[in-house]
């Protein structure tokens, strides 16, 4: 059972070029920084392709679902602070900030971040999730 300050269970994923290719189709987004490492080099943006922002947000949503199965996200504010690159092993971690009782349901506010190697923070999220009060 969660309470204010409780850590959430971490969630991890290895980002591949295949998944970025899939996301380019899902989003109908031709931006070459996700698909072509030469385009990334040409723009002086590094040596690896850059993951799509919404995929990064999806990892956080997956972590929320794993922590609160069957819950409903009500609000999710995401600030993108760094890039996730092809080959990165990402980690989603967070904690409970606040719990409100809402007529038989709990509205749980969480602070969550998506990181690589503990140092590179790629997304900072504030998420309000509605869960059944068992």
């Amino acid at each position: 059972m969660y309470s204010k300050g409780s850590p959430l269970k971490d969630w991890g994923f290895l980002v591949s070029q295949d998944s970025m290719d899939t996301w380019a189709k899902i989003l109908d987004d031709p931006n070459p920084i996700h698909l072509d490492v030469n385009a990334v080099k040409l723009l002086s943006m590094g040596n690896r392709t850059i993951n799509q922002g919404p995929a990064n947000i999806a990892y956080i949503i997956n972590m929320v679902e794993k922590n609160f199965p069957g819950s409903q996200i009500k609000k999710m504010n995401n600030k993108m602070t760094n890039s996730i690159l092809e080959g990165d092993l990402v980690k989603v971690s967070g904690q409970v900030l606040k719990i409100e009782n809402k007529e038989g349901e709990l509205l749980i506010s969480c602070s969550i971040k998506l990181t690589v190697d503990e140092e590179r923070v790629a997304v900072i999220s504030e998420v309000d999730v509605l869960v059944q009060n068992a």
Binding site: L43, P54, K75, M76, N77, N78, M80
Partner: peptide
């Protein structure tokens, strides 16, 4: 020009229902 490398900075979502 998309070749300049546009990036998503923030994305704030709210849901009334699933």
């Amino acid at each position: 020009d998309v070749n300049n490398g546009p990036m998503l900075g923030q994305c704030n979502m709210s849901f009334r229902s699933r």
